[in-house]
Lab assay of single mutants.
Amino acid sequence: VVEKVLDRRVVKGQVEYLLKWKGFSEEHNTWEPEKNLDCPELISEFMKK
Rank of each mutant, 00 (worst) to 15 (best):
W31I: 01
N36P: 02
W31Y: 01
L18C: 09
P33D: 10
L37F: 12
D38W: 05
H28G: 10
P33I: 11
L18T: 00
L19I: 15
V10W: 02
K12G: 14
G23P: 02
V5I: 14
L37E: 01
K35Y: 08
G23C: 06
K22I: 08
K20I: 01
V2P: 12
V10P: 01
K35T: 13
I43R: 02
K20T: 05
Q14P: 01
K35C: 12
E27H: 11
R9Y: 00
E16C: 03
E27I: 14
K4W: 04
L6S: 03
L6N: 03
K22A: 12
V2D: 01
W21C: 02
F24S: 12
E26P: 13
Q14K: 13
H28S: 10
H28P: 03
V1W: 07
L18V: 00
V1I: 15
W21Y: 08
F46R: 02
Q14M: 11
K49V: 08
K12Y: 06
E26G: 10
V2M: 08
K48Q: 15
M47D: 14
S44I: 10
P40W: 11
V2F: 07
E3R: 00
V11H: 15
G13Y: 04
Y17A: 00
E26W: 09
W21D: 02
G13C: 07
Q14C: 08
I43A: 05
Y17H: 00
V5P: 00
V1E: 15
L19W: 01
E16W: 02
P33A: 15
V11Y: 05
P40K: 14
K4M: 09
V5F: 01
E3Y: 04
R9I: 00
E3S: 05
E16Y: 15
N29Y: 07
K35V: 12
L19Q: 01
R8G: 03
C39N: 06
H28C: 13
L42T: 05
L18Q: 09
K35N: 11
K20V: 04
H28L: 09
L37G: 05
E45H: 03
C39D: 10
K4D: 04
E27G: 12
D7L: 04
K48W: 04
V2G: 08
V5G: 00
W21E: 01
I43L: 15
W31F: 00
H28E: 02
R9T: 01
V5K: 00
L18H: 08
L6R: 08
G13Q: 05
L37A: 09
L18S: 02
L42D: 04
K35W: 06
W21T: 02
R9A: 01
R9N: 00
V10C: 06
R8M: 11
L42M: 13
L19D: 02
V2I: 14
G23W: 08
V11R: 14
R8H: 07
K4N: 06
E45T: 06
E3D: 11
F24M: 15
F24P: 08
G13D: 05
G13F: 01
L18M: 06
C39G: 03
R8L: 06
F24I: 10
V1C: 04
K22Q: 08
P33T: 10
D38L: 09
E16D: 03
L37Q: 05
E3Q: 06
K35A: 12
L6I: 11
K48P: 07
E45R: 07
E41G: 13
P40T: 15
L6P: 00
V11A: 11
Q14F: 06
V10I: 12
E27V: 13
E32P: 00
V10E: 13
D7Q: 13
W21G: 02
V15C: 04
P33S: 14
F24D: 04
L6H: 06
V15N: 03
S25I: 02
T30D: 04
S44D: 14
P40Y: 09
W21R: 06
C39W: 02
N36T: 15
L6W: 02
E26A: 12
H28F: 08
E3P: 00
L37R: 02
P33G: 11
V10A: 06
R8I: 06
S25D: 13
P40G: 11
D7K: 08
R9L: 00
E41Y: 07
D38F: 06
T30A: 08
E3K: 02
M47K: 15
E45D: 05
Q14R: 13
D38C: 06
F24T: 11
L42V: 08
R9E: 00
N36Q: 14
K22E: 12
P33R: 11
G23I: 02
E16R: 03
L6M: 11
E34A: 10
E34G: 09
M47G: 13
R9W: 00
I43P: 02
W31Q: 04
N29L: 09
E45S: 14
P40V: 12
E45C: 15
N29H: 06
L37P: 00
P33Y: 12
E32H: 04
E26H: 09
E16S: 05
K12E: 14
G23Q: 06
V5Q: 00
S25W: 02
L37K: 01
W31L: 01
E45G: 08
T30G: 06
V15F: 09
G23A: 07
V2Y: 06
Q14E: 15
E26S: 14
K12S: 09
V15L: 07
M47A: 14
L19Y: 02
F46L: 08
S44H: 13
N36H: 12
K48Y: 05
M47W: 13
C39P: 02
W31P: 02
K48V: 09
R8E: 10
D38M: 06
H28N: 02
N29C: 10
K22D: 10
D7N: 10
D7W: 01
K22R: 14
F24K: 15
V11C: 11
W31C: 00
V11E: 14
V15K: 04
F24L: 13
K22G: 08
V15H: 10
G13S: 09
K48H: 08
V11K: 13
Y17K: 00
V1R: 10
F46E: 03
K35I: 13
W21I: 04
E32K: 08
E45P: 03
E41I: 11
E34M: 07
L6Q: 06
L42I: 10
S25G: 15
N36A: 13
R9F: 00
P33H: 11
S44N: 13
V10S: 12
E16K: 03
P40N: 11
P40M: 15
E16L: 09
M47I: 15
Q14I: 15
N36Y: 03
G13K: 04
V1A: 07
V2N: 00
D7Y: 03
W31N: 01
S25R: 08
K4L: 07
E27T: 15
R8D: 05
E27M: 12
Q14H: 11
T30Y: 02
E41T: 13
R9H: 03
S25F: 01
L18E: 05
L19C: 15
V2E: 07
Y17R: 00
N36K: 12
F46A: 03
Y17P: 00
T30Q: 08
E41R: 11
